[in-house]
Design a protein around this nucleic acid. Structure first.
Length: 455
RNA sequence: GUAGCCAUAGCUCAGUUGGUUAGAGCAUCAGAUUGUGAUUCUGAGGGUCGUGGGUUCGAGCCCCAUUGGUUACCCCA
């Protein structure tokens, strides 16, 4: 029997971790609900066909594919062999795999909308908190199984949706204590206008991939990469000027208008940003023209939430507007915009900054000591009454020395112990001790619920 | 997929140019006090040094392979 282990990049979650994660989830859910979003869940797996081609070439490689069952069945064996040959050339074959674990929540959502568009009430606002899987090499802040929390509005082109989503980011991060997060915003339309000015729209991807790395590799390396991607000096010079745009959001918009030739794309992109900026005061939002985002279905506004600069953790959330996501599934004309929170990274950031409230790990409120057979039975009755009142309590499972029972309570972060010995039994009361302060008092049993509700 | 680093007790680690029965702290358990807890005292258990080969009189240490972890690239939450 080999040592038990977990698949790479996956984790077990202990009680303490789950309570902290639930703290994040419940705040996100609360804000989503407050903004009128409705919950949705989709399966862990999708048909592979639903997912491939939606995340770009690199994305396709990171989809976890599920091997078909019954490949060794005689009537399948020949097909499987041919299919496998195909797989070896780097392609996928439905004879080998036709299902995959979901890679994000947006594409399955688009599939859901496409399947149900006749029944849904538009604009349709849904939120979704579920795990997703990526066959990526794990490293800091990167897992193979992680949880996304998405909110999307589909069936509306109103920029008020962007405004609301920006507010959602802000409210959630405030609730979590991440007040110095940064929300970067840009528009794919402006990037398209830049591409137009630099060799045409077919250069859009090359340009965005390169400039997205500015933070990491610096301007010189970006210029090198642009050169390798076939841009000439004049085009690179335009991009450099573009990347050097600084100032307030308003100033940045003016500068980008001056730099790029006037076009419908540019006008649309800049006025989109102006609208969103104009309706979101004091939200830690900054225009970042280098923001590009990988997923190629975005067409308008794009968002990226950055962790506070004091921690080494890039993006803790992202999103954007897509004109026609459901078009991928043969249902055209449903535009939308959405955002996502990366819970696992938010968790790591909050842990590093020690932002979790102290009292999250209190499960059991009171431990009843076991002071003997008769005492324990007496305590059990008292405890059951507390439980009926909604107060979590435990009775120490066996009679043992006091020190050990105290230690158990301490280790489990139980804040109070209730001692019922022969004396208390005789007086029909109990001794309640606060472990944090060391204070203890004698209470009658009918005082207990009120006491614990107060503390 | 590519590259670097790491692997010794439950945890964090030490282990000299290769040399006897491989150590420490914390944790665990048991005992001097049978109704009051971190402290102190005494003692105990626990490792075929990730795995498999090789070099050597001799390997935790050197070489090769392999597995796992980790960090970075690509990409991303």
């Amino acid at each position: 029997m080999p040592k038990p282990s977990l698949p790479q990049g996956t984790r077990d979650f202990s009680a303490e971790t789950i309570r902290k994660r639930n703290f994040i989830f419940s705040n996100i859910r609360k804000v989503f609900e407050l903004y009128g979003f409705e919950p949705l869940e989709t399966p862990a797996m999708e048909n592979l066909e639903t997912l491939t081609g939606k995340y770009g070439e690199e994305g396709d490689k990171l989809i976890f594919k599920i091997l078909n069952n019954g490949l060794n069945n005689e009537k399948n064996i020949e097909k499987a062999r041919i299919g496998f040959e195909k797989v070896l050339t780097g392609k996928s074959s439905p004879d080998i795999t036709e299902r995959a674990l979901k890679y994000d929540l947006t594409i399955p959502f688009a599939r859901y909308v496409a399947m149900n568009h006749t029944k849904l009430i538009f604009p349709f606002r849904r939120y979704q908190l579920q795990p997703v899987w990526r066959a990526d090499r794990p490293q800091k802040g990167r897992y193979r199984e992680f949880t996304q929390c998405d909110a999307d509005v589909v069936g509306s082109i109103s920029l008020m949706n962007e405004v609301e989503l920006a507010h959602i980011y802000h409210e959630v991060f405030q609730l979590l204590g991440l007040s110095n997060y940064e929300l970067r915003i840009n528009s794919r339309k402006i990037l398209a206008a830049l591409a137009e000015a630099c060799g045409g729209t077919d250069k859009l991807t090359d340009i965005t991939i390169a400039i997205d790395k500015l933070d990491k590799i610096g301007i010189e390396k970006v210029k090198e990469e642009l050169q390798q991607r076939g841009l000439n000096d004049k085009q690179i010079s335009t991009i450099e000027t573009y990347l050097n745009i600084t100032g307030s959001s308003e100033e940045k918009i003016i500068q980008v208008r001056n730099l790029l030739n006037q076009s419908a794309e540019l006008d649309a992109g800049t006025s989109d940003l102006e609208f969103v900026i104009g309706h979101t005061q004091n939200l830690n939002m900054v225009i970042d023209f280098t923001l590009a985002r990988g997923l190629n279905y975005y067409t308008g506004t794009i968002f990226e939430a950055k962790a506070p600069p004091s921690v080494q953790m890039g993006s803790i959330g992202g999103g954007g507007r897509y004109d026609d996501l459901t078009g991928l599934f043969e249902v055209a004309g449903i535009p939308g915009v959405g955002i996502s929170f990366g819970v696992d990274r938010i968790y790591d950031v909050m842990e590093e900054l020690k932002l979790f409230p102290e009292d999250l790990n209190i499960g059991t409120k009171a431990l009843f000591f076991n002071m003997g057979k008769a005492e324990a039975e007496f305590a059990f009755t008292a405890m059951q009454e507390l439980r009926r009142q909604g107060i979590a309590a435990e009775l120490y499972h066996e009679e043992t020395k006091i020190a050990k029972q105290f230690q158990y309570a301490e280790k489990k972060h139980i804040p109070f112990v209730v001692i019922i010995g022969s004396k208390e039994m005789a007086d029909n009361n109990c001794c309640v001790k606060n472990l944090a302060t060391g204070n203890q008092e004698i209470l009658s049993f009918d005082q207990l619920p009120a006491f614990f509700n107060k503390h």
